[in-house]
Design a protein around this nucleic acid. Structure first.
Lengths: 142, 142
DNA sequence: GTTACTGCAAAGCTTTTGCATCCCT
DNA sequence: AGGGATGCAAAAGCTTTGCAGTAAC
């Protein structure tokens, strides 16, 4: 958290209360919230906060590399304080997005490495999360 | 192609000219077009075709399993006549989406298989495509 | 003849933009 | 003090919806 603030200062980015609130809300958050969820949460602390500010802040934070933007959900962007590469499981029952922090080894044919300069990779696993397979309540409809 | 038509008939889905035109345009298409691109292409053949029809057809075709919907591009949905599982490379220069049909082996820790019922997986590779690494023209701006 | 599909237009969501005001540094 | 950040409202882009008319089966 503090290293993130330091990082932002180095970029000459102003630390406004709204931005700090967004960062605080995201810090340690494993729910991959959308801009709207972040907006709602931050608004409770700073009722004056606007949507535009949340969006612009999320863009600034993403571009500074302090948070990352997930493209896992086709409906809306989601944000993640964890910037180191990791994978995700999308529960096909409750639609929850779960971090896969484990070491995953991928083996691709040599010719692919010759054809493309591959810089990074991201795996989406589709399946059933622990909660749902436990016969857990399927609270979320879709 | 014909097997797809057969498949649709079995589902009791009506084969209208618009639907056939969409299917024909998608057949063998490796560009992962968006709904708008499909709309434009189909409109040339059937100028009366509406956006709503394209969207509803794409939904029907996706639900019948005749085409698949890609979530690779966070800006818009893209469609693919290839329904068997394969992976994608997203060129970070020209934004092109390239099929990775090769066999890719993924090894995940045992505990993940215990925690989740994993049904499928999809890898996004990020890198530079052949065209761009050849010093090829970077036609598309973003 | 039925029933599902089409076209049109309007609305719904998420995200972006313009601009005057404000406040972090 | 200065320049970036904020809030508001309006707009833009993708997708969905309602409904009357139409065409596939």
């Amino acid at each position: 958290m503090n290293s993130k603030l330091k990082q932002l200062k180095e970029f000459g980015i102003k630390l406004t209360p709204q931005r700090l609130a967004i960062l605080e809300y995201l810090n340690g958050n494993r729910d991959h919230p959308s801009a709207e969820m972040i907006y709602k949460a931050v608004k409770e602390k700073f009722p004056m906060t606007s949507f535009a500010t949340v969006y612009s802040t999320l863009e600034v934070l993403t571009k500074s590399g302090v948070i990352s933007e997930l493209k896992v959900d086709p409906e809306r962007r989601r944000y993640d304080p964890e910037t180191s590469p990791h994978h995700h499981l999308i529960c096909t029952k409750c639609r929850k997005i779960v971090d896969i922090n484990a070491e995953v080894s991928i083996k691709i044919p040599d010719y692919l490495d010759r054809e493309f300069e591959i810089h990074s990779r991201h795996i989406e696993f589709y399946g059933i999360c622990q909660n749902c397979s436990k016969g857990g309540a399927n609270i979320l409809k879709r």
